[in-house]
Structures are given as C-alpha cells and as structure tokens.
C-alpha cells in the first residue's frame, strides 16, 4: 500500500462526524469500489450509495424488446457492447435470441459495427447505441463514417443518455456525489460547478485505487467544512472545458430528447437521438419499428435502487428469484449494476 492510499484510508476510517451519504453516480465506480473492497473499510457513519450511472441498468426494457424485434422479425445483425447481451427484455434476452438463431455480435466499438456493415453489404446491421456522454461520441463517429461511406445497411438504435438533467432528479439523494470521471472528461466541469451554486456538492473521481481513495478522502474532508463544494480529483484526465471536439460532434449528429430511464421514468431532455439529417441511420425510422412498450416485472425494485431509495437487499426478489444467472432486473445483469455488485461482493 502506498502513501496515498495509506493517508486516504486514515482520513476515511477516522471520520467521526455525523452520518454522511455519498453517492457514486458511475457504475464503473460501483464496480471498482466493490472490486477493491472499499466498502469494507468505511465506518458506519459513511454511507456509500450506488447511483444510476450504469447505462445498461437505466436502459428501459422496451429497448431490448425493440432490439429483439429487429433481430427476430427483421433478421438484422445486431451488434452490441457485450454488456447488453444478458439484459432481460419482456420475453427473453439477446443471448436467448441468439440461441434461437438470431444474429447477435458483441463488438468493442461502434466503429467495428460499421466495418461489419461495410464487409457484409447484404446484411442489415444495427448497432445498439447506449451510453452516457462518454460513449455517445463513439456512436456519432460511427454514424458519420457510415454516411461518408454511403452505407445503406447500417443504422443505430439509440438509447443514449445525458447526465446533467438526471443530476437534478437525484438532487437530495445524497450529501455529496462522486461524479463520473469519464463523463466529465467529455462534458467538462461546468455542470458540477453550477450544481455547487445550487448547493449540490461533489467531486470528480478517477478509477484506480489511488484515485478512488483520494477522492473519497477529499469528499470526507470537504463535508466536514459543511459548505457546498466541488473538487476535480481527476485532473490528469478531466479538464474544466472537457473535450470540445467531442461536444461539437455530439451537437452536430445528435440532439437532446425526453427519454425513459428504467426505474426513474421519463426525464426531460435527458436522452440523445439522431438529428433529422442523420435519420437514414436511425433504426427506428429506417426499419419502421412499431411502438413497443416493455413490461417490467412489477416486483422489481431496480428503480428505487437506482435512486438510492433502497438497498438491493431490500428487494424481495434479490438473491432469491433474481440472481446474476437468472436476472430479473437490469441492475442484476450488468457487472456494474448495484444489485449484481451487492450480490457478488456483498456476501462476506
């Protein structure tokens, strides 16, 4: 253990003030916090809540149903980040559709999906475009490239999300937020600074042991001062202005829309969809997808878990009906979903 971790640990474990609630918004933070065992170090008066920052977890069930429709009814080749393959739709997940003969292919990047479309001109290729500001530029680049190549067999099914308006919905869920480092790498820090003006505190954190521990230590120290704060604890990657080229690219290709978050409902202007001039690459328009409403399991409490209103273990299905092998809710599917993380790491 190095000095950074040692000193951070002393600050965190030595905290003896009133109870504080800290929400890590980002799912990769949730994952790393569990993987490093950080929760086991926390004293009882520090509550670390896992927020809605896993794009897979907040993707509504109807989106999976749309993808299943394209795979099974329209014989499209579905390309996707591996994360989505096990997320349950109303009837089944994409893994099961694949076992039934659907063409489903995990890719590392949307650019790979474009290449697949280029190499298979007779196959209709759809990329499942999920993600926050970190991931959205990769979809925008893919669409621009497909347009340049004049591909007629490529489109994306968008469920992209935008964080700023979601933060407002979460306001009050915690005393301080650990902001998602890689979202801020794109968006910059202005939103977080603005939130500070409104009394919402937080720090931007990176993802290594050093970064997570030092960010938590800073959060604790700042909370002691009892006034709103914002600290960029990930300056080696996050600049105040973010990534202007990525912001410009997103403005060019996509626009904000109202969108449904699994469990949270519709949040105004918190989604991204393709602009009209790129509608040839919008799967919903291009492939005439009918309106599909997914039917979530009514007992699933993922929505409350995502808002920090309840712990995964408060859900009646947790660990019984709903396990990583037989996931009911999305939070159990993704490795970084709060339920999955609680299930896998929380049993000590």
């Amino acid at each position: 253990m190095n000095e950074i971790i040692q000193r951070s640990k002393e600050i965190i474990t030595g905290y003896d003030g009133p109870k504080v609630r800290i929400m890590e918004v980002c799912g990769t933070h949730t994952h790393e916090i569990f993987r490093l065992g950080i929760r086991s170090l926390l004293p009882e008066n520090i509550d670390l809540i896992s927020g809605p920052g896993c794009p897979v977890c907040v993707t509504p069930i109807g989106f999976i149903d749309e993808a299943l429709y394209l795979a099974l009814e329209k014989n499209c080749l579905i390309t996707t980040f591996g994360d989505l393959i096990k997320v349950p739709g109303t009837e089944m997940n994409l893994a099961k559709a694949r076992a039934n003969g659907a063409a489903i292919r995990p890719v590392y990047s949307p650019d790979d999906a474009v290449e697949i479309a280029k190499d298979n001109p007779d196959t209709e290729v759809v990329f499942l475009s999920v993600g926050f500001e970190t991931t959205t530029p990769s979809s925008c680049l893919a669409v621009k490239k497909a347009k340049e190549l004049n591909l007629k067999n490529f489109s994306i099914l968008t469920a992209n999300k935008s964080m700023p308006n979601a933060y407002l919905k979460l306001k009050g869920s915690a005393d301080a937020f650990i902001y998602p480092g890689h979202v801020n790498a794109i968006t910059g820090n202005s939103v977080c600074k603005h939130l500070k003006e409104e009394g919402v505190s937080g720090v931007v954190a990176g993802f290594t042991a050093n970064e997570l521990m030092s960010a938590l230590a800073v959060t604790i120290e700042m909370l002691k001062k009892n006034e709103p704060f914002f600290v960029n604890c990930y300056p080696r990657v996050v600049k105040d202005e973010g990534n202007p080229a990525a912001i410009k690219l997103m403005d060019e290709v996509m626009e904000l829309c109202d969108t449904e978050w699994r469990g949270l409902g519709i949040i105004e202007k918190s989604g991204m969809k393709l602009k009209a001039e790129y509608s040839d690459f919008d799967s919903r328009i291009k492939l005439n997808i009918p309106v599909i409403h997914g039917k979530p399991n009514p007992a699933c409490r993922c929505g409350e878990v995502l808002q920090g209103h309840c712990k995964p273990s408060d859900c009646p299905m947790f660990g019984k009906v709903c396990t990583p092998l037989h996931a009911v809710g999305a939070c159990m599917v993704s490795d970084e979903g709060a339920c999955s993380a609680y299930y896998q790491y929380g049993q000590m």
Partner: peptide, 14 residues
C-alpha cells in the same frame, strides 16, 4: 473508451 480516445492523460495517478 469504446474505441475512441476521449482525453489526453497528463500525469500518472500517483
């Protein structure tokens, strides 16, 4: 991230 370089890194985490 996802096949895109999203930021330059200007130091190590230590």
């Amino acid at each position: 991230h996802a096949g895109v370089a999203i930021a330059k890194i200007n130091s190590d985490d230590e």
